[in-house]
Design a protein around this nucleic acid. Structure first.
Length: 575
DNA sequence: GCCGTTTTCGGCCCGACTGTTTTCAGTCG
């Protein structure tokens, strides 16, 4: 049973207990554990075997027993019994926005609704509208939400698709005279790999005028809610966008509140409460005196709570508050730390521009080096280079390097296929000529975990492989990761001194955040690379940096934060 | 069901908007 499956069981237990009307705190306990297990960088089965389930946040006696039962028997009696008490479609009914446990229960008990189809019928024929304390407007709204919910292909979209839209929306809103400090918050500010909606905040003394302007923007297709301080809309592209406004004095608190995550805020506010303080989007209130204190910066808010500043990328409701309390939030890697990019393609294979155009773009970014890593021959679809073509490219690059007077260096390289048996797609004598060898899986992605893991480890054992490119090959929302034992990959990477790539392409982000964190814990070297096929894509580096930051990576963990001489020394290349 | 710089028992985040209500419950973020 994998982590996602275990997490789903606990998530569903939480939902069913809500319908049952059980303690909201108990419900939260199950939901928290579900989320923690879903975000675990290691296999929950492995943790269980080591007897370390209790190291998961929120796992106590009861839930530990339940996880063990689930893993050992594939079933959980407590859950099975709960499922018997309710119609199986009830959980799905509650996934429709605006339908919570109370309404789901009433629809079931008072109208006999047991699934989404039945709910739709009851909405359409007027039965819902006639229930006490419901009405035509409620029924109409739920029906509308149901149709929108059906139309959506997935709950969350890749950050790379949403972020540009959100920036444009914030820019349009900032032209409203009554608002200042228009800022993106929520999961976009935390750089989560996927986002569900766009959260925008601003400061204003006349917020009603601003929400009025917001719902009137041309991108808005539908207004979901519209009050004096906040508004929610559905955009023409189907995304939901929320706007929240407060007076200038509360802006830092608003930013902190709306950046979330929700789980982070719950933990933060629980901590505050133990200190006799109450945290809200207005500021921090002393519970004893009722005095509201406001703050100029987020740093000041965390400081008031006795905590180190926690960067947005770490605010996921895990152990970041405990660590901040002990002063253990490190100085995370930043875009300015990067000295170069180690994965780029040109028109020699499947890139779109000549070498010199890519190089000029890299130099314009202030880099000291750029690795040209066109594909190896096995990737026919990407016009992979033959050995002869590669050697010709090397001669040209060596000539270009002689023209630089400022120490800039084009690194010769290749993105080499790892073949199905783990062999690399160029002969050793060719690979030996290169400054840097990125090796990646591009074929036979359906291998089982044993074969795939052996294949990758064999490749890493080659003396020439420097970097494992986009290690899980997943494409967010499009292609699942390969089946592979990541713990074994981390161990092999460490023993062979192979760096693992954090591919910054927004459709990849691979390694992903939780794998970065595990790699950092184990002392595995990382690189952050854009895998650019066009000079403009060099600008996607922030997505990779953010992913690394979400995995708690510091400059020392990232190979391409090193200046050229140090990098060459690490790669075993000496001038 | 979990958890501890007041606690192994008694707590457990905070506020806005909507609809159907004459004062509030449900849902969401």
């Amino acid at each position: 049973m994998n982590n996602a499956a275990v997490a789903e069981v606990f998530e569903n237990i939480g939902k069913l207990l809500e319908v049952k009307g059980d303690s909201s705190f108990k419900i939260r306990a199950y939901q928290r554990v579900a989320r923690e297990i879903d975000h675990l960088p290691v296999d929950v089965t492995a943790l269980a075997e080591e007897g370390r389930l209790r190291s998961i946040q929120g796992v106590g006696d009861e839930i530990e027993k339940k996880i063990l039962e689930l893993l050992e028997t594939g079933k959980l009696a407590f859950y099975e019994q709960l499922l018997q008490e309710f119609p199986p479609g009830l959980i799905e009914i509650m996934s429709v926005p605006s339908v919570g446990p109370k309404m789901a229960t009433r629809l079931w008990k008072e109208l006999g609704v047991t699934d989404v189809t039945g709910m739709e019928a009851a909405l359409r024929d007027g039965r819902v509208a006639t229930l006490p304390r419901m009405g035509a407007k409620t029924a109409e709204n739920v029906l509308h939400q149901l149709e929108a919910w059906r139309g959506r292909k997935s709950e969350r979209l890749p950050l790379g698709d949403v972020r540009p839209v959100a920036l444009a929306l914030a820019d349009a809103l900032s032209k409203t005279p009554e608002v200042t400090h228009v800022t993106l918050a929520g999961s976009i500010r935390r750089w989560r790999e996927t986002v569900k909606d766009i959260d925008i905040i601003g400061a204003s003394d006349e917020p009603q005028k601003v929400t009025d302007a917001f719902v009137a923007l041309p991108e808005v297709a539908e207004v979901i809610s519209h009050g004096p301080q906040r508004a929610s809309v559905r955009l023409r592209n189907g995304l939901q966008a929320d706007l929240l406004l407060k007076p200038e004095a509360s802006f830092a608190s608003l930013l902190q509140h709306f950046t979330g995550s929700k789980e982070h805020n719950v933990l933060l506010r629980e901590r505050a409460q133990r200190m006799g303080l109450s945290v809200s989007e207005y500021g921090i209130t002393d519970t004893a005196t009722g005095n509201l204190e406001t703050f100029a910066t987020e740093e000041a808010i965390y400081k008031r709570l006795g905590l180190q500043f926690i960067p947005p990328e770490l605010r996921e409701g895990g152990d970041e508050i405990q660590r901040a309390e002990k002063g253990l939030i490190p100085r995370l890697v930043e875009i300015a730390d990067l000295k170069g990019d180690l994965h780029a393609h040109t028109e020699w294979s499947d890139g779109h521009t000549p070498i010199e155009v890519m190089v000029a773009a890299a130099r314009a970014r202030g880099y000291q080096y750029l690795a040209i890593t066109d594909h190896s021959p096995g990737l026919g679809i990407a016009r992979g280079l033959t050995p002869d073509r590669l050697l010709e490219q090397l001669r040209i690059i060596h000539e270009m390097n002689r023209t630089f007077t400022d120490g800039f260096r084009i690194l010769t390289g290749s993105e080499v296929n790892i073949k199905a048996d783990g062999a690399l797609d160029f002969p050793d004598e060719v690979l030996a000529e290169l400054d840097v060898v990125v090796a990646s899986v591009h074929s036979a992605m359906g291998q089982d975990a044993v074969k795939m893991t052996d294949r990758i480890i064999r490749a890493m054992e080659s003396p020439h492989m420097d970097i494992f490119g986009h290690p899980t090959t997943r494409l967010i929302g499009q292609r699942d990761p390969i089946q592979v034992d990541m713990e074994a990959v981390f161990a092999a990477a460490k023993s062979t001194r192979t760096a693992l790539e954090v591919n910054a392409s927004p459709s990849r982000l691979d390694l992903k955040d939780i794998h970065v964190r595990r790699a950092v814990e184990l002392g595995v070297m990382l690189v952050i690379s854009t895998d650019s096929h066009h000079p403009d894509q060099l600008a996607q580096m922030p997505y990779g940096v953010a992913t690394a930051r979400r995995g708690w990576a510091e400059p020392v963990h990232v190979l391409n934060t090193r200046p050229l001489p140090d990098l060459l020394a690490y790669l075993g290349r000496v001038d």
